[in-house]
Simulated assay, not measured.
Amino acid sequence: MEYDGSSVYDNAEFLQQYLLRRNRQDSPNNIIEKPVLLELMGDFTGKTVLDLGCWDGRFGYELLQQGCKYYEGVEGSSNMVHEARTRLDTTNSQIHHATIEGWNYPQHTYDIAISRLALHYVQDIQPTFGHIHHALVPGGEFIFSVQHPVLTSSMASAEISGKRSNWIVDEYFELGKRTEPWIGESVVKYHRTFEAYFQALKQAGFTIEDVRECSPRPELFEHQDEFKRRMRIPLFLMFRCVK
């Protein structure tokens, strides 16, 4: 069985295993991707934040604790929505159960839109970038991360169990659907090149202010062997854009 987008998180067994991996201290999401995202967000005190693919609301709770005025999340998984609403129950926030591409975006509403590792589940990214552009106030920022295209180009490396020491990059310029074996399931993602993301953002009206590949920072790693392994290939691609 193939799972499209966030539907895989409604598999209870998968969700349990995913959350164990995602929330562990040495998760690449926590020590490689997240520090760069926070750096690009800068001072969000008093800002209204839209989070596309908000998962379990954990990051939204952190943003609110650190000065975000209002947080709004969009999540396609009913299990994740339940987790997020429970976690954010008493905060100035709202969680919508909808897909990123299917949600009815309000216009000129948010100071910052973010998305962490969710947009590679969206088949047609161009309309979504357009919706996000319209949802931001003038001068609003859009900051997002995706799985790096060198990883999404070929799923051959993902079929190898255990810690990978070699990665296969193939069919890089063949855009489109990929099916990844992940935590015992088959999950559909969509491969786009660096160029494809860049051009889609420009066509939606964004100005690209910064691009990062989230170079690992040695001080954040408990074990230097793991740091050296993570220095071999980029895991994430991140853009900071302005309306």
Rank of each mutant, 00 (worst) to 15 (best):
Ser27His: 09
Ile132Thr: 07
Ser186Lys: 15
Asn29Asp: 09
Asp111His: 12
Gln16Glu: 15
Lys69Asn: 10
Ser145Thr: 15
Ser186Arg: 15
Trp103His: 14
Ser77Met: 07
Leu201Thr: 05
Gln107Asp: 12
Ser161Ala: 12
Ile132Glu: 10
Glu141Gly: 01
Gly60Met: 12
Ser157Pro: 02
His120Gln: 13
Leu20Ala: 14
Arg116Leu: 06
Thr152Asn: 10
Gly73Thr: 09
Ser115Thr: 04
Glu185Phe: 06
Ile208Gln: 06
Gln203Val: 01
Ile125Gln: 04
Phe142Ser: 02
Ser157Ala: 08
Tyr172Ala: 04
Phe227Lys: 07
Arg58Ser: 14
Glu83Thr: 00
Tyr190Glu: 09
Glu101Leu: 05
Ser27Tyr: 06
Val211Asn: 05
Phe198Glu: 03
Ala156Met: 09
His97Leu: 15
Ser6Ala: 15
Cys214Trp: 11
Ala158Gly: 10
Arg240Tyr: 04
Trp103Ile: 00
Asp51Glu: 04
Leu175Ile: 13
Leu151Ala: 02
Arg240Asn: 06
Glu33Ile: 01
Asn104Phe: 02
Leu151Gly: 01
Tyr105Thr: 01
Leu220Tyr: 15
Val137Cys: 15
Val36Pro: 09
Ser115Lys: 09
Tyr197His: 15
Thr90Glu: 14
Glu2Thr: 12
Ile168Glu: 13
Met238Arg: 02
Ala118Gln: 10
Ser154Cys: 12
Gln66Lys: 14
Leu151Cys: 06
Thr48Pro: 01
Ala200Trp: 05
Trp182Ala: 01
Glu226Cys: 00
Arg22Asn: 11
Arg178Glu: 08
Gly140Gln: 07
Ala84Asp: 08
Ser77Lys: 03
Tyr71Met: 05
Ser186Pro: 00
Arg229Tyr: 03
Glu75Ala: 08
Ser215Glu: 09
Ala135Leu: 04
Asp124Trp: 08
Thr152Gly: 10
Ser165Phe: 15
Glu171Val: 00
Glu226Phe: 10
Phe227Gly: 03
Ala118His: 07
Phe227Asn: 06
Trp167Asn: 02
Thr207Asp: 11
Asp170Pro: 00
Ile160Gly: 00
Glu222Lys: 14
Ile100Met: 12
Leu20Gln: 14
Gln224His: 07
Glu2Phe: 10
Ser78Pro: 00
Gln94Phe: 14
His134Val: 01
Leu235Trp: 12
Tyr105Asp: 07
Gly57His: 12
Thr99Ser: 15
Gly46Met: 10
Thr86Phe: 13
Glu101Gly: 02
Glu13Gln: 14
Lys189His: 15
Asp111Pro: 03
Glu195Gly: 13
Ser215Lys: 12
Leu175His: 08
Gln17Pro: 00
Ile233Tyr: 11
Arg230Val: 00
Ala204Thr: 02
Asp51Val: 02
Pro28Arg: 11
Arg229Trp: 04
Glu226Met: 05
Asp26Trp: 11
Asn92Thr: 08
Tyr121Arg: 06
Thr128Arg: 10
Val122Lys: 11
Gln147Asn: 11
His108Arg: 12
Asp51Met: 04
Gln126Gly: 00
Arg230Met: 14
Phe14Met: 05
Ala118Val: 00
Ala12Gln: 13
Thr86Gly: 02
Ser27Lys: 09
Leu52Arg: 02
Ser27Met: 08
Gly60Asp: 09
Cys214Tyr: 14
Leu235Asp: 13
Arg164Glu: 03
Ser78Asn: 09
Cys241Phe: 05
Glu75Pro: 02
Ile31Val: 14
Glu226Pro: 01
Glu195Thr: 09
Phe14Leu: 07
Gly42Ser: 09
Glu174Pro: 00
